[in-house]
Simulated assay, not measured.
Amino acid sequence: MATPRARTTVFSSPRALSPVVLLVLLAAWEGAVRALHVPAIVLPAPSAVVQALWLEIRSGILWPHFLVTCEEILAGFGIGAIVGIGLGVLIGQSRFLEQVFYPYLVAAQTVPKVAIAPILVIWLGYGLSSKIVITATIAFFPALSNTIVGLQATPREQMEMLRACTATQWQIFCMARFPQALPYIFAGLDVAAVLSVIGAIVGEFVGARAGLGYLILQMNFSFDMAGVFSILLVLCLIGICLHLAVGLVRRRVLFWAADQADPLPGL
């Protein structure tokens, strides 16, 4: 039998409280919609959202659009992460390159992706290519900037010691700079993975023939708010899954710091 102290410890744990908070919020949402008689076109109840999602799954309308959006997210995230980390390694190795090129990369990042998305759709068409490029441009900068910061975070004492042992620049990079940068790189990948969902939906809003963003627009036109909220729920789940996947890989790679690499505190 659990002691009062043990029960207090369990219920004060964030992992135990997080789902409780979610259930309370959903119950309050459901109760408020029913008590105030809020029209479904304004704010559907959680039960209506779940019902709409179940109907979409049963009818088969969700899966083709789901797969298209997942392909755009994963491809865009992969390309953006690879290019961002690659350029980050090159720029992070040299103060000269950082001072020359990094300001332009920052300037390019400040341009709203919503503004350039129509241009990319015109250039690349309404297919997957334009959505993947838009997603990659959003995922690119977090991977780039965190890689540069991580490479520059290597303690000078470590590099001086390796140079004293006649280590080459490549050996210093492999033995000190890159391992030191890995936590920063994974932090950037975590942000890039979540932002990739936004990138794919932005591209589909601008112009698409399929995808969850396209499905949201169609449901908006028909005033199916429960359906819109159900798609938003699916997008949230995709983002959480990507977040957990990055955290899982981080735990495997950064095994020496596994206690600091919880992919999603509270779950």
Rank of each mutant, 00 (worst) to 15 (best):
Leu43Ala: 07
Ile61Tyr: 07
Cys174Met: 14
Val249Pro: 02
Arg163Pro: 01
Leu55His: 08
Ile116Glu: 10
Ile216His: 10
His243Asn: 08
Tyr126Ser: 09
Ala193Tyr: 07
Leu144Glu: 05
Ile119Asn: 02
Tyr102His: 08
Gly78Asp: 07
Glu56Gly: 03
Cys165Pro: 00
Leu26Arg: 01
Leu254Tyr: 10
Arg58Lys: 05
Pro64Ile: 15
Cys70Gly: 08
Ser47Val: 08
Ser12Ile: 00
Ala115Phe: 09
Trp29Lys: 01
Glu98Asp: 10
Ile41Val: 13
Ile185Thr: 01
Pro19Trp: 03
Leu151Asp: 01
Tyr104Asp: 01
Gln260Tyr: 15
Ser59Asp: 15
Pro44His: 04
Gly203Pro: 06
Trp29Pro: 01
Val111Cys: 08
Leu244Cys: 05
Ala28Cys: 10
Glu56Ala: 10
Arg34Cys: 03
Val100Tyr: 11
Val33Glu: 01
Ala35Ile: 05
Ala27Pro: 00
Phe11Arg: 00
Thr110Trp: 05
Asp259Asn: 07
Thr8Tyr: 14
Leu215Asp: 12
Ala245Val: 09
Gln158Thr: 05
Leu235Met: 10
Tyr214Asn: 12
Ile148Glu: 08
Ala40Lys: 05
Trp63Thr: 13
Thr168Tyr: 03
Ser130Asp: 06
Arg209Cys: 06
Gly78Trp: 03
Ser94Met: 05
Ala2Trp: 14
Ala245Leu: 14
Pro39Ile: 07
Trp63Val: 15
Ala226Lys: 02
Ala107Asp: 01
Gly207Val: 03
Met175Ile: 02
Val100Trp: 12
Val24Met: 09
Ile122Cys: 00
Pro14Cys: 03
Leu67Tyr: 11
Ser129Val: 12
Ile41Tyr: 05
Gly199Arg: 02
Leu22Pro: 00
Phe221Trp: 07
Asn220Tyr: 13
Pro39Gln: 10
Trp63Ser: 06
Leu17Asn: 01
Tyr214Trp: 15
Pro263Glu: 09
Trp63His: 04
Ala143Cys: 14
Gly199Ala: 05
Cys70Trp: 02
Leu248Thr: 07
Val42Ala: 13
Pro265Val: 04
Leu36Gln: 12
Ala48Pro: 01
Glu157Ser: 13
Leu62Lys: 05
Phe96Pro: 00
Pro263Ile: 06
Val114Arg: 06
Gln218Asp: 12
Leu87Gly: 04
Gly60Trp: 02
Leu74Gln: 07
Leu124Tyr: 12
Gly150Ser: 03
Pro155Lys: 01
Pro39Val: 09
Leu128Cys: 05
Gln218Phe: 07
Tyr126Asn: 07
Gly88Asn: 01
Pro103Asn: 11
Ala28Phe: 11
Gly247Leu: 10
Val83Leu: 15
Leu120Ala: 04
Pro183Leu: 14
Val249Met: 12
Pro112Ile: 07
Val228Pro: 04
Glu72Val: 00
Ala35Gly: 06
Leu97Ser: 08
Arg209Val: 14
Val121Ser: 07
Arg5Thr: 12
Gly60Tyr: 03
Leu62Trp: 08
Ser12Trp: 13
Val83Gly: 04
Met225Ser: 15
Phe186Val: 12
Tyr104Leu: 08
Leu22Asn: 00
Gly207Leu: 03
